[in-house]
Design a protein around this nucleic acid. Structure first.
Length: 270
DNA sequence: CGCATTTCCTGGAGGC
DNA sequence: TGCCTCCAGGAAATGC
């Protein structure tokens, strides 16, 4: 499940592998993964150059010349790889684009992900590419406090991409535990010190996860095929029944914001 | 407004 | 071994 650190890892590798290359032949095996485009990708992409690859929230953005943006959202099981030409085709490969050193491939078994081709700057209004809140890594405390100023469960708020963009279930739970905040706490009930702790925890955990190339539980691999390793440093996610690494109390699982949610009932009191 | 539920989709896990 | 059912979840839509 690619969240911000995984998408950052993917974008960095694609940037290294694609920048300065020209896009070639295109094969689209499942048309419905293209969520928005001004016309057929096969007419619009081949021949264009790649200026660079960046990340915004959980999206991979390929900047094109002539100008435009090819955006990938990976959903749950989406994977982007740069594959040698002629490598065996893996199941659920929906899109292939030739590049000089091989092929950019987009796979996504569950198809929660998708592809957008946009004129530069059109990102905010495209269908199924909803508005995004600020990036957590550069968020400052006063703005974070404004975001928190609502009577809404803190977990639901952190998961809402329109409030803060890029956190998903894993890093949300890990951050709440590190900051000792219960997931059901109304956001506006967090005192100044709690908000400061939570923001610092979010940033620290995201940075450390990026350094570990993200978390791999099942599907996630970066474009070079390697798994991440941050799962070894998880303190609550998927650890229900195991002792809290801080206080030895058993980690419990509950449902919050419609998602499996892991917490330490002692470290994270209501 | 906020929260829960449903929808999309497949592979993996567990039951029998 | 082989079915069957259930369930995970990012994000949007729907219902209360």
């Amino acid at each position: 499940m690619p969240e911000l650190p995984e998408v950052e890892t993917i974008a960095r590798q694609l940037h290294a592998g694609l920048t300065g290359r020209r896009l070639g032949a295109l094969t689209l095996s499942r048309a419905d993964i293209v969520r928005a485009a001004p016309g057929p990708l096969a007419d619009l992409l081949p021949g264009r150059g790649v200026i660079g690859v960046t990340r915004r929230a959980k999206r991979v953005i390929v900047a094109l010349d002539p100008p435009g943006e090819l955006i990938f959202h990976l959903g749950m099981t989406g994977r982007l790889t740069i594959t040698p030409a002629g490598a065996p085709l893996e199941p659920h490969t929906h899109l292939r684009i030739g590049v000089e050193n091989g092929e950019l491939r987009f796979r996504d078994p569950r198809r929660f992900g998708g592809v957008w081709l946009l004129a530069a700057g059109d990102g905010a209004t495209a269908p199924r590419l909803g508005a995004l809140g600020p990036e957590p890594l550069t968020l400052r405390l006063p703005e974070f406090r404004r975001i928190l100023a609502r009577r809404r469960q803190i977990k639901a708020l952190l998961m809402d991409q329109a409030a803060i963009a890029g956190l998903g279930n894993i890093y949300c739970d890990e951050s709440l535990h590190a900051a000792r905040v219960h997931p059901l706490t109304p956001a506006c009930d967090l005192p100044l010190e709690g908000a400061r702790r939570l923001l610092h925890a979010i940033k620290r955990i995201l940075r450390r996860a990026i350094n570990h190339r993200g978390t791999t539980f099942m599907d996630y691999r970066s474009p070079d095929g390697q798994p991440g390793s941050f799962q070894r440093l998880h303190r609550v996610y998927q650890r229900d029944g195991s002792p809290c690494k801080t206080c030895r109390t058993k980690i419990v699982r509950m449902v919050a914001a419609g998602r499996g949610t892991f917490l330490c009932p002692r470290c994270q009191r209501r």
